[in-house]
Design a binder for these strands. Structure first.
Lengths: 113, 113
DNA sequence: CTGATCTACAACCATTTGGTTGTAGATTAT
DNA sequence: ATAATCTACAACCAAATGGTTGTAGATCAG
């Protein structure tokens, strides 16, 4: 294990936040440039309050941060969190490799006798 | 884009399936070796039916498959789906790099004059 | 100062989620 | 044949989710 900087419930929040297309879209837009909550909200066929809630979910998952600028809140994506999520899935793929290695070892031992 | 073999709702299901520690645990165990639903269920402090539902969620997300063997159902993890999830997050990280490149290009153009 | 804009947040509602228990069908073991 | 095991699935329930509208506080523009 290398990536376990995240508790189980943080991982829960992280993947849950990513499990909604509106939220993923917000993350992509926040990666690409700076946006206020209201400018983001203008893009979606739902109320400002609904988008505000989505941003809050992303914020609790540390996928974005908000920074007050005048009367606006600027939403920025958090690169590190996306990296951690990817690394988590990398770990899963690593388990497969370990399993394959383990099986290969056993086969090698068999042929040693 | 390279990874878009998945529809938005499939991605929803995929991340939603990963957003639960019991389900992630089941995936890890299914990666490591073969398990029936009931042998998996024995590990968790919840009913068999609850675990059965978790497996169903993983199955709908294509994270695992079930194969009938006698009266048991063997649960196997689907390596390809985990890879797709990781690649999706890779794409996000790629957007950051593209943004950085774009900014670098603009700075280069500025200094060309 | 007044009005427009941006945000925060509460209250409400329908649907989904994650758990339960209970019943029933298949398969295996005695 | 009977009993035990494994699975499927329905019905139910509390809590969370994802949306709404409405109200109110800050900030900016005229």
């Amino acid at each position: 294990m290398v990536v376990d900087q995240l508790s189980e419930s943080e991982v829960d929040r992280l993947f849950h936040a990513l499990a909604d297309s509106t939220r993923r879209s917000i993350v992509v837009r926040a990666i690409s440039g700076e946006h206020s909550v209201s400018s983001l909200a203008a893009s979606y066929a739902m109320s400002f309050a609904a988008v505000q809630k989505h941003v809050a979910v992303l914020e609790q998952a540390s996928l974005v941060t908000k920074e007050k600028r005048g009367r606006e809140q600027i939403v920025r994506a958090n690169r590190e969190t996306v990296r951690k999520a990817r690394q988590l899935l990398d770990e899963y793929e690593k388990i497969w490799r370990q399993r394959a290695d383990r099986i290969a070892d056993i086969l090698a031992e068999d042929s040693e006798d």
